[in-house]
Simulated scan of single mutants.
Amino acid sequence: MHALLVTLLVIVCVGLIACVLLQSGKSAGLSGSIAGGAEQLFGKQKARGIDLVLHRMTIVLSVLFFILTLLVTYIGL
């Protein structure tokens, strides 16, 4: 059981890394981070297409990562 959970954890980790690296940058430099944060806060910029899919996949994979990490720790004790 422990080996299966560790294997799933490694697969989720690789998928999470790939999803984060495939996402496009939201801003350019320090001034872009300030302006980009304001645009995102007020909803002027909406993610569409592949960015939306990657964003949702990142959320799902991060939740799976958290759950699997807790399970591996609990079973490993």
Score class of each variant (00 low, 15 high):
residue 19 C to A: 13
residue 1 M to H: 09
residue 9 L to Q: 11
residue 48 R to P: 00
residue 35 A to Q: 15
residue 73 T to A: 05
residue 42 F to A: 04
residue 47 A to S: 08
residue 44 K to E: 13
residue 7 T to D: 04
residue 18 A to K: 04
residue 70 L to S: 06
residue 50 I to T: 06
residue 2 H to W: 11
residue 65 F to L: 08
residue 69 T to H: 00
residue 53 V to D: 09
residue 38 A to Q: 06
residue 35 A to N: 12
residue 41 L to N: 04
residue 50 I to K: 03
residue 44 K to V: 09
residue 45 Q to T: 10
residue 35 A to V: 12
residue 65 F to H: 06
residue 72 V to K: 04
residue 8 L to E: 03
residue 61 L to R: 07
residue 16 L to H: 04
residue 21 L to P: 00
residue 74 Y to C: 06
residue 41 L to V: 05
residue 3 A to F: 15
residue 49 G to C: 00
residue 28 A to D: 10
residue 21 L to Q: 12
residue 3 A to V: 15
residue 27 S to G: 08
residue 64 L to R: 04
residue 30 L to D: 01
residue 29 G to T: 05
residue 9 L to W: 07
residue 57 M to S: 05
residue 47 A to W: 03
residue 41 L to Q: 02
residue 46 K to A: 07
residue 75 I to M: 09
residue 38 A to F: 12
residue 45 Q to D: 10
residue 3 A to N: 14
residue 42 F to S: 07
residue 28 A to G: 02
residue 30 L to K: 11
residue 43 G to I: 04
residue 25 G to Y: 12
residue 68 L to M: 04
residue 55 H to L: 12
residue 11 I to P: 06
residue 75 I to F: 14
residue 55 H to F: 12
residue 45 Q to N: 09
residue 34 I to W: 14
residue 54 L to G: 08
residue 48 R to M: 02
residue 65 F to Q: 01
residue 70 L to Q: 02
residue 35 A to Y: 14
residue 30 L to V: 08
residue 1 M to Q: 11
residue 23 Q to F: 04
residue 68 L to F: 04
residue 18 A to Q: 03
residue 10 V to N: 08
residue 38 A to P: 01
residue 64 L to G: 03
residue 58 T to V: 05
residue 11 I to E: 01
residue 41 L to G: 02
